[in-house]
């Protein structure tokens, strides 16, 4: 196994260019499970945790190497709430937002927030930079649009993040649990509301009909809240697996979205 441990972005991009099929190792929290259990034996690894540029967090840009631990303590409430639910403290010290995108699990905890705010993913290779919107980047369950030789550099947010943000995640344990369903709701002063859900479809799902309906309501009534909940439940595409049933996930999506809406309205 060849491993390179670049310290800056230029060296990392060069390493990725030299071995376009190399496995990119960030926090290792997903990759090493593959190594330990699924016989993953990469021939080339580019380990990027030392790359200084990827640790950057500027106003509207979060470097791919920013850990959940930093997100949890950071100023973006929706992302902080989501990051707090990722695995254990040990996982949050190592795992990164870039890794969450790279793995692109339907249950990725930060993904509903990124979907709700229409974040973009910045990719770079020695050939140049690409910026893909989250739904262009995540192409399916555990699939994404990163090309050979490309690195995820970070996520970029639109100019202004919604003022009110709330996240919730359902699991049957109080911590360290894969989401049965998760949800992020944001709302702006003008009423614009965004709803994104995780673990209830192959990729994060935006409940656009529900968004449209509720964004038009300046003071939602009990009836509109109920309708909002129903629309969200209608728009998710859950499956039944060993963690839960499609039926419960659909139902819980509606309940969670309504509660989060009440949270951002309060």
């Amino acid at each position: 196994m060849d491993i390179t441990l670049p310290r800056d972005l230029e060296a990392a991009l060069a390493a990725a260019a030299a071995a376009p099929d190399a496995t990119i190792l960030a926090g290792g929290t997903d990759l090493m499970v593959g190594v330990n259990y699924h016989g993953v034996r990469p021939s080339a690894v580019v380990a990027i945790r030392r790359v200084a540029e990827l640790q950057e967090w500027e106003d509207r840009f979060i470097g791919a190497g920013v850990t959940y631990r930093r997100l949890e303590a950071g100023p973006i409430p929706g992302l902080a709430q989501a990051a707090r639910t990722v695995g254990s403290p040990q996982i949050r010290s190592a795992g990164t937002i870039g890794g969450n995108l790279g793995t692109a699990s339907p249950a990725g905890d930060t993904l509903p927030f990124l979907a709700a705010v229409d974040a973009s993913v910045v990719l770079r290779s020695t050939a140049g930079e690409r910026v893909l919107r989250w739904d262009e980047f995540i192409t399916g369950p555990k699939r994404n649009a990163r090309g050979p030789g490309e690195l995820i550099i970070g996520v970029r947010f639109p100019d202004r993040l919604p003022r009110r943000q709330a996240f919730a995640k359902i699991g049957v344990r109080s911590a360290m649990v894969i989401a049965i369903a998760s949800c992020c709701v944001t709302r702006d002063e003008d009423g614009t509301t965004r709803v994104a859900l995780g673990s209830v479809g192959p990729t994060p799902i935006r409940a656009r009909r529900a968004e449209e309906m509720i964004s038009a309501e300046s003071r939602p009534t009990e009836a509109t809240l109920t309708e909002f909940s129903r629309l969200v439940a209608d728009e998710v595409r859950p499956i039944t697996d060993h963690r839960s049933t499609a039926e419960y996930r659909r139902y819980a999506s509606g309940v969670m979205a309504r509660r989060l809406l009440e949270r951002v309205l309060s």
Partner: peptide, 16 residues
């Protein structure tokens, strides 16, 4: 939230 159902998943307000 650490003492509430749903824990740090922040699913559940005390009123629920």
């Amino acid at each position: 939230p650490r003492s509430l159902p749903g824990g740090t998943g922040l699913t559940t307000p005390p009123g629920a």
